[in-house]
Simulated scan of single mutants.
Amino acid sequence: MLLDTLLDRTVVAGYSRLGYVLRRRAWAADDPAPDALRGRVALVTGASSGLGEATAAGLARLGAEVVLVVRDLERGERALGRVRALAPAAKVRTARCDVADFASVREFAAGEPRADVLVHNAGVLPPRREETGAGHEITLATHVLGPLLLTELLRPALRASADARVIWVSSGGMYTQPLAVDDPEYRTGRYRGATAYARTKRMQVELTPVLAERWRADGIAVHSTHPGWADTPGLAASLPSFRRLVGPALRRAAEGADTAVWLAATEPGPPPGRFWHDRQDRPAHLLPGTRPAAGDAERLLRYCLAAVSR
């Protein structure tokens, strides 16, 4: 436990592949059963590459029927082929949904009558401020608003599940940011894509316990997790300098996806409303000045619910 905590607080060691390798030694008895997700339906957004694809493959290998939820069907079909190669006996398919586009989210949700696991993985890191057609900043729409709307629309399907789990894939970068409850659309100050990304990842983590309470009566458990530093196409495209700097220390995509898969499949289910990394719940705050005032997360949720209801 002491080694685990030291790895986490030092960041570089804990988020790198070294942290995964050292911790993995203690997990053998904690791995989900090979058929842990047999008979269950799992939806994974942003599954056309990287962490999303690796998460989809991990869930499929545990027996789940997996829907690769993608914005680009051509890329999604290529990812589908790779997932099938890793889990040839699994039932997997693609479905189109741009989570930043509320109309696309509604259309997709209307065609999905079953859902036991919902993994919110889709992500963007834009070089400049962009807005969706509905007028929302793109990282907020992709990381918070669209996923919230999708979960709300799938509540009947999730409610019908015997063990529904919703998992938000956040980022350790969220530790650098406070909750931007007074400017969720990032309209003020100098815009930086990496900051926008970290701000909205902070929102995911702060909303996790609030949403866990909101959906508790429906039997829906809510978790958030971060993957550490994983080598993915998204990282290469968005942060090439960082990728060159840490290079060999980066985790493989499947290693970054491990905790999301574990949260979906382990029995008994983990305590809801918490933030996880490498199968251990982690503090939501490490730096001074990032802890929100009482009621701020609830205030942000009210803003988000109003935004997606228009």
Rank of each mutant, 00 (worst) to 15 (best):
residue 154 L to I: 01
residue 159 R to H: 13
residue 160 A to R: 10
residue 161 S to T: 06
residue 162 A to I: 09
residue 163 D to Q: 09
residue 167 I to K: 07
residue 168 W to D: 10
residue 171 S to E: 12
residue 172 G to L: 11
residue 173 G to A: 12
residue 176 T to I: 00
residue 176 T to M: 03
residue 177 Q to F: 05
residue 177 Q to K: 13
residue 180 A to E: 04
residue 182 D to H: 06
residue 183 D to C: 07
residue 186 Y to P: 00
residue 189 G to M: 01
residue 189 G to A: 01
residue 194 A to M: 10
residue 194 A to V: 12
residue 196 A to R: 00
residue 198 A to E: 05
residue 203 M to W: 05
residue 204 Q to L: 04
residue 204 Q to I: 02
residue 205 V to G: 00
residue 209 P to W: 09
residue 209 P to M: 10
residue 214 R to S: 12
residue 217 A to Q: 14
residue 220 I to V: 15
residue 220 I to C: 08
residue 223 H to C: 12
residue 224 S to V: 04
residue 225 T to C: 15
residue 226 H to A: 01
residue 226 H to M: 05
residue 226 H to L: 03
residue 228 G to E: 04
residue 229 W to T: 10
residue 232 T to C: 09
residue 234 G to E: 04
residue 235 L to G: 00
residue 239 L to A: 15
residue 241 S to H: 09
residue 243 R to V: 11
residue 247 G to S: 15
residue 247 G to K: 14
residue 251 R to C: 01
residue 254 A to E: 15
residue 255 E to K: 09
residue 255 E to N: 08
residue 259 T to S: 09
residue 260 A to Q: 01
residue 260 A to F: 01
residue 262 W to R: 05
residue 263 L to S: 07
residue 266 T to P: 00
residue 266 T to G: 03
residue 267 E to T: 15
residue 268 P to C: 11
residue 268 P to N: 12
residue 271 P to F: 05
residue 273 G to E: 13
residue 274 R to D: 13
residue 278 D to W: 00
residue 280 Q to S: 14
residue 281 D to H: 15
residue 285 H to D: 14
residue 289 G to T: 04
residue 290 T to G: 08
residue 291 R to Y: 02
residue 292 P to W: 13
residue 294 A to T: 15
residue 296 D to E: 15
